[in-house]
Amino acid sequence: MNASPYLLEARDLQIRFGGVVAADGVDLAITEGRNLAIIGPNGAGKTTFLNICTGWIKPSRGRVAFRGRDITRMAPRKICRIGIARAFQHPQLFTEHTAIENMLIAASARSGRQNPFIDMHNLPERGEMMHLLDMVGCADVADRMVVELSEGQRKLIDIAIALAMKPALLLMDEPTSGVASAEKFQIMDILVKTLAEAKVTAVFVEHDMGIVENYADEVAVWSGGKVQFKGTPQEVLQHPEVIRDVIGGEVA
């Protein structure tokens, strides 16, 4: 039973890398259906937070719960299986395969089929995987090797693979970094629409304030190993301290 009102809840997280404090008593809660952007200076610990939430790194103190269930010490593969998927700053794809094969591998992982006489290309999920590629605007490159595709296309396929796991929560690390400015908003339009259709809540680390302002429902400002502010984009992005310390502009 889910006793927690939050989809994901981090309490009192602490982790250090040598002398660097990436998280020092962090509390952050994510509400289902509310896309959260995490902003902050480079090296502040934003990606570390995603790593902790997906089990890649274990915090020295604190607790992470997903739908009220403690996942702090779980392996990434187990966390993935209960509904948290991850897309990466540098797309994590199977480089010797085509886009649709990458999707079918994800479908294979999800289904857990062990029959060695089924051809992966004939999986019943093929239509669903093509639909996901179509949703992220990559259906036309389905049969191309992923190494031949642009960074933007690879990022979208990385996200589509994560969505193939039918997660409730998708964690994305800078989904528009390395993408041409002209493509950024196009990609985010597709992405937010796809997430809404798939009923997936998203947490994304982002440096582009235009993206944050337009596509996040909530914003958390991560600085000095803590969440300094959390609120709507309008509240947070106009806060004088955020403008001065994170955005780097003049306070009006």
């Binding site: 392996a75 593969r77 294979s108 289904s111 089929r113 029959n115």
Partner: peptide
């Protein structure tokens, strides 16, 4: 097959496989 393809992805991306 799916099981064989997952086995072969050990070569290209274990991180994604874990995820």
């Amino acid at each position: 097959s799916p099981i064989g393809q997952l086995f072969q992805t050990v070569k290209t991306n274990e991180t994604r496989l874990e995820y």
